[in-house]
């Protein structure tokens, strides 16, 4: 008996050590940690084309990936100083809370609970999205209001799961939810006929559809049932790191507004008289000093990663397999809601 008690105590202690290690030891250390390592550990999805997706060689690309690359360009002057951790929707917040990753850039919706109780900060919005429904065309369904009694597949631990319940409750309808941990299983189960409906962010519907056996068999219903502002996330308690990620994203948007792109930035740097542009290319002002990085930080982002419009067209635009319209994600001056605070 004595032995069992000691063994049990030891096991408990071991378990507690693991949980304790889960929380980083001191407050505000993320930036220090990143600098010391020399690269950013960036949490991404397990593969959503256009947002974060590995190619055959394991190189990651996508809009979410480029937000991490922009931050690395700002901090290290080198966009390639990023390592990626693929995370399921269920794993992502624990990974950030525990310090396994430095930032999370993985189609994650900004909500109050996540911003507060989960100990995280949202550093802006990289893509304005909304939740939609996908069904087989053969069902003959025209609107989501005809979905009473349907089986619905989606990812667990998402805002999707909650909005789905809200929507059906609000409309007095019932559904059978089938919630998977991994996106690939959701798609496979829906494709195998387990569910009548596949629901997630509209952008992800478009992206995942490219993985289905016969994409043309499916249709997205017109309803958008929620607001899904997707953006990069950092842990609480490191304001400097928070600022750096936030302004790296803002610079991409501001650059598009100023007409600065990776193609023309060197020419603009040499020639432009526009004070806004001169600040962005690092020849005037001291934005870098305020962020604690080199004054070329914004130049590096634009040169190495590109402005928001370039990034969007490269990964999500009409010429990609995902083929999404800019929609809400046009600049505010072009009829969208994309709006960066002044970079000065």
């Amino acid at each position: 008996m004595k032995k069992t008690i000691t063994a049990f105590a030891a096991a408990t202690a071991a378990a507690l050590v693991t949980t304790a290690i889960v929380a980083p030891a001191s407050a505000g250390p993320v930036l220090d940690r990143v600098k010391a390592k020399g690269f950013i550990q960036c949490g991404v999805s397990q593969g959503v084309p256009g947002f974060s997706n590995p190619d055959e060689k394991g190189a990651w690309s996508g809009l979410d990936v480029d937000v991490c690359r922009a931050t690395a360009a700002a901090l290290f002057g080198d966009a390639s100083k990023v390592k990626y951790t693929p995370l399921s929707s269920k794993e992502r917040f624990t990974a950030l809370q525990s310090g396994e990753i430095d930032m999370l850039s993985r189609n994650t919706t900004w909500t109050l609970v996540r911003d507060t109780a989960l100990g995280m900060n949202f550093a802006g919005v990289a893509y304005y999205d909304g939740q939609g429904f996908m069904v087989r065309k053969s069902l003959g369904v025209k609107t989501a209001l005809e979905l009473d009694g349907a089986s619905v597949c989606t990812n667990l631990g998402t805002t999707t799961e909650l909005n789905l319940s809200d929507y059906f409750r609000a409309n007095g309808m019932k559904f059978k939810g089938v919630f998977f941990e991994k996106a690939d299983e959701v798609v496979a189960a829906y494709d195998a006929g387990r569910c009548d409906v596949y629901t997630t962010d509209q952008s992800a519907l478009a992206a995942q559809r490219t993985k289905m056996k016969n994409p043309a068999e499916h249709q997205v219903l017109p309803e958008i049932i929620s607001k899904e502002p997707l953006g990069p996330v950092v842990p609480h308690a490191d304001d400097q790191w928070f600022d750096l990620v936030k302004w790296s994203l803002n610079v991409m948007i501001e650059a598009e507004e100023l007409g600065l792109s990776s193609a023309n930035i060197d020419q603009m740097k040499a020639e432009s008289k526009n004070p806004g542009i001169r600040r962005m290319v690092g020849v005037e002002g001291d934005t870098g000093k305020n962020l604690g990085v080199d004054n070329n930080w914004s130049y590096n982002i634009i040169k190495q990663v590109g402005n928001y419009g370039e990034v969007f067209e490269r990964h999500l635009g009409e010429n990609t397999p995902v083929g999404l319209p800019r929609g809400l994600n046009k600049l505010w001056s072009k009829g969208g809601i994309l709006y960066a605070p002044p970079v000065r």
Binding site: L16, T19, A20, P24, Q97, T116, L118, G119, P235
Partner: peptide, 14 residues
């Protein structure tokens, strides 16, 4: 360990 965990959670606002 328990104390440390609680402190860390509090300092991160979790």
């Amino acid at each position: 360990i328990i104390n440390n965990t609680m402190d860390n959670l509090a300092s991160q606002g979790i």
